[in-house]
Amino acid sequence: MRLIVEHRTRYRFSEPQIRLIQCLRMTPDDTDDQTVVGWSIDVDCDARLRQSRDGLGNRQAMLYADGPIGAIEISVRGEVLTGDHGGHVRGTAEPLPPEFYLRETDRTVAGEALGAFVGGAVSGLLGADTIDAATRAIHGRFERIPYVEELRDAATTFAGTTATGREMAQMLVAGLRTAEIPARYVGGYRQREGRACAPHGWVEAYADGEGWIAVDPSTGGRVDERYIRVAVGLDTAGVTPVAGSRLGQGEEMLDVALIVEQARRQ
């Protein structure tokens, strides 16, 4: 599938900022399933961008801009060819072994209830079946909502009955780890016909002998050619598209506009 992404992030500040430094995790990488045909990040003010790769292998760009800055818009535009390998993830940069992704973080403390729930869902199963079963279980347990004011951690989300897609993914990550299955949070894009788009999050979990398998608890199934994988992390915080620091007073307001669509035949 040929997917086109247009992702605009606009910050406005109530008072001009003296300086901005931001880490942009907005650049997908080639894998066996996705080929980045073209990708550009543009900033509407005088800024310097430096590309690098973080410790988990994600591509990132540091943005440096001097003030006074009243507003800044980061426009990402790109085109990616995707394929479908049944959720199997291959050809990724892997600086760390799967075992690392058993690590608990503040946001992925599962708590007893979530641990028991996932433990129950996977009991008696082996390999990739455990991952699929846990994904279906989380998918079935929660009513999906489009938006929360502030993303909740795994245990807090589990105590309720509704969850956003990203919260479901974070819960699944936490739950799989309690079952000693390495799991990580993936940030990226998903194309959905005729629907408003928002940055999406799903899960990659590791099955011995099969490797990393990508699943999406908001659909209950595996990831397919409609997904563009951008960054992986231990939890939602690790894949924030724009993580930054500003020097200046006042409030900031954020607008995000996103279009992910299939390229029309020329």
Binding site: R53, D54, G55, L56, P95, L96, P97, E99, F100, L102, R103, E104, L234
Partner: peptide, 18 residues
């Protein structure tokens, strides 16, 4: 044992590769 490294918050993935 790998887990005392990988599960240890003092092992900083942020500096892997440096």
């Amino acid at each position: 044992p790998p887990d005392i490294v990988f599960r240890n918050p003092q092992f900083r993935h942020e500096v892997v590769g440096i």
